[in-house]
Amino acid sequence: MSKIKLGILGGGEDSLIGILHRVAASMFDRYEIVGGVFDIEHARSLSFGEKLQLDSKRIYRDLDHLIKEEAQLPENERMQVISVLTPNFLHFPMAKQLLENGYNVICEKPLTTTYEEAKILQKTQEKSGSIFGVTYTYTGYPMVRQMKTMISNGEIGEIQKVDVQYYQGWINPLIHDKEKRSNTWRLDPEKSGISCCIGDIGTHAFNMAEYVTGMRISSILADLNYLYEDNPMDIDGTVLLRFSEKVKGVIRASQIATGEENNFTVKIYGNKGALKWEQENPNYLYLLKEDQPLQVLKPGHSYNSDFSLEGTKLPPGHPEGIFDSMGNIYLGIANAIEKNTKFEGAFPPLAEGLRGMSFIEKTVASHKKGNVWIKMNDK
């Protein structure tokens, strides 16, 4: 079977996210990285492409050059899908141009810097018919997919409470230094959009809450923290959630949780039981039921769903992690490109990125209006 030809925008020498995507694309032997634009400076991009042992002729100066030169190649040699791994403000123009030229797209989150841009992107994708995946990475974990399946099957009953926490501490050393916080791109609205914490990690929590429960959040109330008056971007926040009048929840997100690394925890409580999952210990899914011992489910066992097992690459007892999670998303996109989609929720589509942008804007609006409830219904 011939491999899907993949191009990459961004994700160069010093990019953590670039490594994650390249490793993910190599899993399952479904993609071949053939070129791209890895850095804004062409010399650095060329140097990095050489380290990846790519043909220097396909390390392009910019996106315009890439589109022009790829069109000159025989159709069976051209890039079929391109990953956009650039800072947030470049997601929209790059993804839009790629869709308009017939490419399938894989895009980092947040999808764009505004909800209006995201709506334009959705219309562009609908017109193009291209596959578009947004890398809400954590939905690729086998035990997250097991959680989704168990909730869908009614194993914890009717959902009553949703509690999602995403705590990091990486901004803490920067935020208290005026010069450092002024020179960090994630705290620059021109490059990052209107939100830092909610836009970066709160959107993961929002997506996860809707992904595993299969429900849509109907309204939110937010309280954000900026810490310093000259800092225009939130770095901490709490968001109350209403799925319905009887189903409530909370998202707690922070980048100033001192000492925390990547503490993403998901807890779903039903009237017959509960499920808990922690990103830092991703191979354990905890099932709680009244008057029964705590159960611990792990990946790779036959008791798991087909959806969970499809994304499990190692025998039981062998840890799998975030590279595997992203790899499972790339697998889902590969299946879609080859019209071989197997499972509902195999990758986050553009529509989930659109919902994420709506959540970011409504969260900021709720805070600025005095911490009021705002409906999540899309415009």
Rank of each mutant, 00 (worst) to 15 (best):
I8C: 08
G12M: 12
G12N: 00
E13L: 13
L16M: 13
G18I: 04
I19M: 12
M27I: 07
R30L: 12
Y31W: 00
G35E: 02
G36V: 01
V37Q: 02
R44K: 15
S45N: 02
L46M: 08
S47A: 15
S47T: 12
S47W: 05
S47I: 01
G49Y: 07
G49C: 00
G49I: 01
L52S: 02
K57N: 13
Y60Q: 03
R61H: 11
R61G: 04
R61M: 10
D62P: 02
D62A: 03
D64W: 03
D64P: 05
H65R: 06
H65G: 09
L66F: 15
I67M: 09
K68E: 15
E69R: 08
E69M: 12
E70N: 13
N76L: 04
N76W: 01
Q80E: 15
V81D: 14
V81R: 11
L85C: 13
L85Q: 13
L85D: 02
L85G: 10
T86N: 02
T86Q: 13
F89L: 08
F89M: 05
F89D: 10
L90M: 15
P93H: 04
K96Q: 15
L99F: 09
Y103V: 08
Y103T: 04
E108A: 14
K109D: 10
P110L: 03
L111T: 15
T112K: 00
T113M: 12
E116I: 07
E116P: 01
K119V: 13
